[in-house]
Nucleic acid binder design. Structure first.
Lengths: 235, 235
DNA sequence: GTAAAAGGTATTGTATGCGATTATCCAACA
DNA sequence: TGTTGGATAATCGCATACAATACCTTTTAC
């Protein structure tokens, strides 16, 4: 029952744990992240926690303010639009890259994935959200372009954060039918159509989920963002 | 004459110093980066050096192998193509975003920049290379999209590394005329043409510089990359 | 002479310690 | 009551310390 003795792996574990916790909203946007307590919770020293914070900060999932420590990122609406714009561009690239190059095995894998999405569509637990995100990651993986994959993953994570803040309660899932259409275009080798479908698909996710910021139920929540960004400290 | 007392700034300084050193090839691709000698050189402890390494590793400028430390990244030709492909996609996005949105002041700034490029074109010192890189950074800045800027900067840095390895001696500069054409298209508001020009521009950089890997002057250099990737340790 | 083993040195992974900065709380005062 | 001040506690930035691993050299066996 010993801890992972493999060196460098514990650091990675901390990073992964925090990353998942943020994306799944166990750690909510804006939440303070004290090094000590998190290290204690995870059974590591502050050193490794700081290391994870640094990586997460590069990826835009945590904010790091000098002498004030880390907190889960709380993107502004403007940052949100930036992220979506970049993601659209990246995924358009994915679509173009993949059009006509999809092996039968890959196409089958994607269709199986969509089938799972359909099944999970009824009970919209976290499962449905996770699956629709993974569809896009799978596509990026299939390009074989490691950098493209990393960027898609990163912007995808940030989209999760953004939807957690500004999205309507259950709107973050992609339309399954749009995924199907995309696969068809990819298999047909129609790069332009695939790119356009992807573009439209992501655009519609934004308009469905983001364009109408939900009315903040809690004044405190509504204001804390602005307070924090000004260096104030609401109770 | 005290060191910068501002907290977090020394860490940033280390990061910046190493970053510049790598891009300007003071630290050559594949070079080993021992934590304590670098820390000693920069007057900081290993802690801050490691922090910088982590950030640089996320950005693909250093490789970090468990228990074996850091070294300046040595991208394979395959990784190189990946980076260029992503960069093309990103900069196409920049061009589309900017088309028709350029303020007169911005257009003037770009033209002034191109003029400088022209002037420096004669003596192809590092100045010329730096300027042609900065042109693209300037464009990305003008989009006002922070994430897009970061990605362009990152892929741009990696391109520098790649050209340092595989590029012909003095081929890494962009064609100034292509920059001019691009500005014109942006000012005319022709998004499609701007995107196409940018695409072609970056493509031609690749073919000019990358497609014919220069003959390695040194056997040791030629092999060290493969040796290292196999865990061997050449003298 | 080559190859394997052993020992010592260098370098990394992680924890901890110390000074500095910031946050919290409570009392004194208007 | 509300706010101002300051002492105390919590937290961060960075350096250092120690353990574990890799590296290099020398020795030893065949």
């Amino acid at each position: 029952m010993s801890e992972p003795r493999t060196p460098g792996l514990r650091a990675q574990s901390v990073y992964r744990a925090l990353r998942r916790a943020i994306i799944e909203q166990a750690l909510k946007p804006g939440m303070k992240l004290p090094e000590d307590s998190i290290g204690e919770q995870l059974g590591v020293s502050r050193t490794l926690v700081r290391e994870a914070f640094n990586r997460l900060s590069v990826e835009g999932l945590v904010e790091l303010k000098p002498n004030k420590g880390a907190s889960v990122a709380y993107p502004t609406l403007e940052e949100a639009r930036d992220v979506f714009e970049v993601r659209r561009g990246l995924e358009r690239l994915v679509a173009e890259n993949l059009a006509g190059r999809l092996t039968p095995a890959q196409a089958a894998e994607l269709e199986e994935h969509v089938r799972q999405e359909e099944k999970a569509h009824g009970q919209d637990g976290p499962e449905s959200i996770r699956l629709s995100g993974e569809f896009h990651i799978k596509l990026a993986e299939m390009t074989g372009n490691a950098l493209l994959l990393r960027y898609v993953q990163e912007s995808s994570s940030r989209c999760s954060l953004i939807l957690a803040i500004y999205g309507r309660p259950h709107s973050s899932e992609c339309a399954v039918s749009e995924h199907r259409q995309l696969i068809d275009a990819l298999r047909a080798g129609d790069a332009a159509k695939a790119a356009q479908l992807m573009d439209h698909h992501l655009q519609s996710v934004v308009t469905r989920a983001l364009l109408s910021p939900r009315t903040e139920p809690d004044l405190r929540d509504a204001l804390s963002r602005y307070a924090l960004s000004e260096g104030l400290t609401p109770p």
